[in-house]
Amino acid sequence: MLAALQTELLLAFRKRSELANPVVFFIIVCALFPLALGSRAELLSPLASGAIWVAALLATLMSLDQMFREDFDQGVLEQMELSAVPFYQQVAAKIFAHWVMTGLPLVLLSPLLALMLFMPAESYPVLLVSLLLGTPVLSLIGAVGASLTVSVRRGSVVLSLLVVPLYIPVLIFGSTAPQMAAEGILPLGQLLWLAAMLVLFATLAPLAAAYALRVNMLGS
């Protein structure tokens, strides 16, 4: 399990030019909001957390298609399946590596973008916490979608259709929490919901993804 994690992180790091794409995408989308909505601070500041969350969701969505594709095509996944290390653990390692290379940079960049979108100062910590809890959920749910569509060429439409509805709760809880913080309310409920979803999907998603990958392998 640890060896798998090490390998996956190393690989993710080697692929960093590819994985930088979502980060760049995230920044661009956030930069488009003021251009489309107008640059006035009083207009942007209530929308800031929503914009950041939508951008983070789209950026994650964009990176999902590549999550298992290469390893599936090269026969790496079937070797993992045949190995003595439980397959779902190796899948979990891949998901974690995916989050480290896509979700985590988004979390770290978000204060900068929040600043550019005039987010009220009270919201910053809540935004960070919500992204920190929410982006792993995006990676986990996304992994299930990516594994279901791994044998589909150009499967990104099906993948989005599948994953976006499941992302909605994360989006709702994640984006409203900073808004409530701006109004001076501590959004404990939302953050707890995000944490609960993180626990739920951290346990279920690797199993479901491993099963779906196996099903796709058997049919290829």
């Binding site: 299930v144 279901l148 569509t149 044998s151 589909v152 499967g155 439409v157 099906v158 259709l161 599948l162 976006v164 509805p165 479901a208 099963y211 779906a212 099903v215 796709n216 058997l218 049919g219 290829s220």
Partner: peptide, 26 residues
Amino acid sequence: FIYLAIIGLFEAIENMETAARTAAVA
């Protein structure tokens, strides 16, 4: 949308058995 995604899985995956099982997981 979820309905559409399930139909999409059936349409997109060529192997019937795989399509059926992935759609079931979905």
